[in-house]
Every structure is written in C-alpha cells, then in structure tokens.
Amino acid sequence: MPHEVQGVVSRAKGEPVTLETVVVPDPGPGEAVVSVKACGVCHTDMHYRDGGINDEYPFLLGHEAAGYVEQVGPGVTDLEPGDFVILNWRAVCGTCRACRRGKPWYCFSTHNASQPMTLADGTALSPALGIGAFLEKTLVHAGQCTKVDERAEPAVAGLLGCGVMAGIGAAINTGAVTRGDSVAVIGCGGVGDAAIAGARLAGASTIIALDVDDAKLEWATGFGATHTVNSRGKSQDEVIEAIQDHTGGFGADVVIDAVGRPETWKQAFYGRDLAGTVVLVGVPTPDMRLTDMPLIDFFSHGGSLKSAWYGDCLPSRDFPMLVDLYLQGRLPLDRFVTERIGADGVEDAFGKMHRGEVLRSVVEFP
C-alpha cells in the first residue's frame, strides 16, 4: 500500500523549497523502499533547486542518505527488511561496456527505480540523483542500497553517499595517492576536506590545504592537512609558489581541485610536480572555459589530468570499507556533521552552506 510522507520539494528555479506530501509506491521488481534516518544537505541539491542540473521540475531533493530497508520488490535477493544501508547513485548495471571491461565504477547505465514518486495530486517528481531522500521513506532501485555495519550512526554513514565519498575517492581512487606522496587540495569545503582525509588515510607525507577562508583552513587541519595557505588576493604565481615552498620547490605529486573553476584548475595544473597528477572533483558550470593555456605546457609537464566521477567509487566495495575504518577510529567522518536539523530546515541550510558556515547540515528523521 502506498505511503504518504512529508518531503522537501523544489517546484521552480531559484524558489525556496517547500515541505509537501509525497506518495511513495510499494516497490516493484528490483526496487526497495527505505526508511530514511538521516540525509546530508549537499551542494548538488542546491544546484537542482537553482536549475544547475536540468529543468525537470518539480524535484524531490536529498540524496546523501542512510536508513533501513523496509520493503523489497519481486526479484530482490540480496536485501531484506531491516538491513542498514547507505543509498548510492551508482547502482551498476553489470552489462555496459565499462562493466564488461572490469571498471564498474565508470558504469554508463546505472539503475534507478522505475516507478515515480508523486505529489498528492499525482504530479511525478524528479528525485535528486535518482534518490530523493529528504523524506521519511523513499523508493530506489535495490542496487542503490549498499549494506554497511549498522553500528555506524546514520547521520555519519549517509555522508558517504555523495560528497565525502567524492572527496575521499578523488584522493585514493582517482589520484592514487600513496605513502610518502605530497598532496595539495584547493578548496576546503566538505569535498576538499574529505580529499584531505583520504590523502591522510593513504599515507601522504605532505598535505597542503588552500582556501580563502581561515575558518575552513582550520577545519582542514583537523582532517589531516600538514600545511595551510590562505590564497585570498594571491595571484596564480603566488599560489603556485606557496605549494612549491612546501614541496622542496618542485610542486605536489597530486593536486586536487575541489572548487572547479578555470583559475583553480590552472593553479592545480601548474602547482604539481613534473609528471604529477591533477584531479578535478569540483563541478564547473557549463559556461566556464579554459583560455590562454599553451599546448606545449600540457606536453612538457607530463603526468595525468583526471576528473573524479563520484570519487571513482564502487559503493559495494568502498562504503563498507570506509565505515569499518570509521568504526576503528581511523577516519573522522563524524567531524563532517556540523549541525542536525529537521526537514523544514533545508532552505536555511542552503544559505549556511552557500556562506561557508557549515561542512554538512544533516536532516534527521525520527
């Protein structure tokens, strides 16, 4: 029997979100209904509200979530009611060309639930990243549910569903940071700090945090940064020199751009050592362009230029591992939770996030 719950909906571009009745159908073949216990407020949700993703309004926001499986549909064999899960937006298909090549973290045909969740009047909702979790129950494809140790608090575990995984994966998976490496991270919000935590976990010896906000640099130190640089007002050359100053004059082995702007990408490109790696994890807008980059520089600097898609993660592999590391006290995931709010506080949380006052506001459900 369908469930009627309260959910956070974005009806039009740039307008404040509203709390509305959402109808969640019983799960069909390959689907599951999850009782959501916590969901982080991510920049991506704000991008949906502001029309930065697409214009398929109304959106059902929320995607960085953890909770318990309540129902499963026909054909679901690897989940059962009561399982504690983190929701993911990379439910791999197993049959596309990436999956067949043994690289399912690049899956080009990920799964979502087939049935729509709707408003009370029957209007179909577009769930953020195929999830939609700012509500008490949500309908997802069973492959979007990753079972993890239920000793992890939902407000902490759910953050692996998007931003924290993106940052940790940018360092460990995409950047392949390893013992003794030097790493620079540009932008120390939630994703950047997660990249710092990932670099520390991987054994990097030097981790340089760069931001324009001293408060964020203080957060970065708590996640493992060994050096900090306030880049406010600094030229590109000055930023590059600051990175070189902490790396023996050479530049970092891996530079992670967690901002995603042309100027920060150039800082990352020139701030790495010869044959070093640049990882772009901050999401640019469609209008951004790189200009005045001599082609010879791409050749002469060598190395790798990479983009991190969801931290190149495989949820079934990475989520349980990272939760285990958290439970062992080796990964400080709880430090990302700045405040706990109700579903009626999401619009205010967007403002705090935009002003850089929080790492993560987390919506909790009873």
Rank of each mutant, 00 (worst) to 15 (best):
Q6A: 12
V17E: 03
V22D: 04
D26F: 11
D26R: 12
P29K: 13
V33N: 13
V34R: 10
V41M: 13
C42F: 10
H43C: 02
H47T: 05
G51F: 00
Y57S: 00
V69D: 13
Q71W: 14
G73W: 04
F84P: 15
I86S: 04
I86Q: 08
A91V: 08
G94W: 06
T95I: 11
R97D: 15
R97K: 11
C99Y: 15
C99L: 07
Y106P: 00
Y106W: 02
S114Y: 09
T118G: 13
T118L: 08
D121Q: 11
P127E: 05
L129E: 09
G132N: 12
F134I: 10
E136L: 01
G143F: 12
R151H: 13
P154D: 05
V156K: 00
G158Y: 10
M165N: 08
A166G: 05
I168D: 05
G169V: 04
T174V: 02
V177G: 01
R179T: 15
S182I: 00
I186M: 01
G187L: 06
C188H: 05
G190E: 00
A195C: 03
R200Q: 10
L201S: 12
A204K: 01
S205W: 03
I207T: 06
V212K: 08
D213E: 05
A215C: 00
W219Q: 13
A220H: 08
T228L: 09
V229Y: 03
N230W: 01
G233W: 06
Q236M: 13
D237L: 01
I240S: 01
E241F: 04
H246L: 09
T247I: 07
G248V: 09
G248P: 02
G251W: 07
A252G: 14
D253P: 01
V255S: 00
I256L: 14
G260F: 02
R261N: 01
T264A: 07
G271F: 03
R272V: 00
T277P: 08
V279P: 09
V279Y: 02
V281S: 09
G282W: 10
P284N: 09
M288I: 03
T291A: 09
D292E: 13
H301M: 11
S307C: 07
L314V: 04
D318L: 07
P320H: 14
M321E: 15
L327P: 04
T338D: 08
G345A: 04
R360S: 10
E364T: 15
F365E: 03
F365K: 03
P366D: 15
P366Q: 11
